[in-house]
Design a protein around this nucleic acid. Structure first.
Lengths: 142, 142
DNA sequence: CCTAGTGAGTTTGGTTTTCGAACGCAAGGT
DNA sequence: ACCTTGCGTTCGAAAACCAAACTCACTAGG
């Protein structure tokens, strides 16, 4: 998890990724929609590309122009973003800003996806899970 | 989501919360396990308490000693942490560090929880969902 | 031809944050 | 009397951040 955070553990990075999921692809648009300072944005995009989360693709020569798209690795961050969105809507909403809503193409309903157990299909909360392995013993060793 | 990130959009904050889910409660232990610099840790704990994610509780007077526990709001961040954990294991693992594994108390199996649709129960990926509402039009307005 | 505009950055210079190391303080142990 | 534990705070140096201006390579309009 620390390694995951070394990639996405940054305010601007996550805002950039949110926009990427909304199909923003160009530097100017990322800049306008996230409000990130341009040098910071340039640096973040570069490191996301280095980390394989975004792909930098030329969409024009003369003049050279590039766009940034999510890779498979990037798309797989969706649960992180959705979980944050959900938590923000639940705990941090203020009334004069309507939340983003998500529609499930499969069933057509407006929903907030939640965690479930792939083993038994039940919904999962923190209390239903326990850590095992190296950290479990660490935490217990107190 | 931006508001959510204003609370947890920080490398150290998320590491602190990870430890909190492992039942770390004391300043020294947070410091040792996250490696966060002490002044940063003090400031982060304070702001997490301000934001209602952690609760600061006195567990001894003479000398005064405090511990930090997750509130309900904090516990509800579990999906964010689990999603990060899962992504890190999938995309950032290196072989000489065993991943943390999670057991579902309900069915006893070792699993990585995933997102599902509360409407129809199907598993959900980024491609199955579409945004509607204010941002959808914004993204389309290009 | 001259000027304006667009897209994708880079440079600059000044302000915040962050960091590691050391310190403070109140007790408890030996 | 001295060392240790727990929980922080203070300090100066180093790094990151920011807004604004600049660059470069074109395209479009008059």
């Amino acid at each position: 998890m620390a390694r995951a955070l070394s990639v996405v553990g940054d305010r601007w990075t996550l805002l950039v990724l949110r926009e990427a999921f909304f199909r923003t692809r160009r530097f100017e648009d990322f800049q306008a929609r996230t409000g990130a300072p341009r040098p910071v944005l340039a640096e973040r995009l570069r490191s996301l590309v280095d980390d394989g989360v975004l792909e930098r693709r030329q969409y024009s020569d003369r003049p050279d122009r590039f766009e940034y798209r999510l890779t498979e690795k990037g798309v797989d961050l969706y649960p992180v973003l959705v979980s944050l969105l959900r938590w923000g809507d639940r705990w941090m909403s203020d009334d004069d800003e309507l939340p983003i809503t998500l529609r499930h193409r499969g069933c057509g309903q407006i929903v907030q996806p939640e965690l479930a157990c792939p083993g038994c299909g039940e919904w999962v909360t923190a209390r239903d899970m326990e850590a095992v392995g190296p950290r479990a013993t660490l935490a217990g060793a107190r």
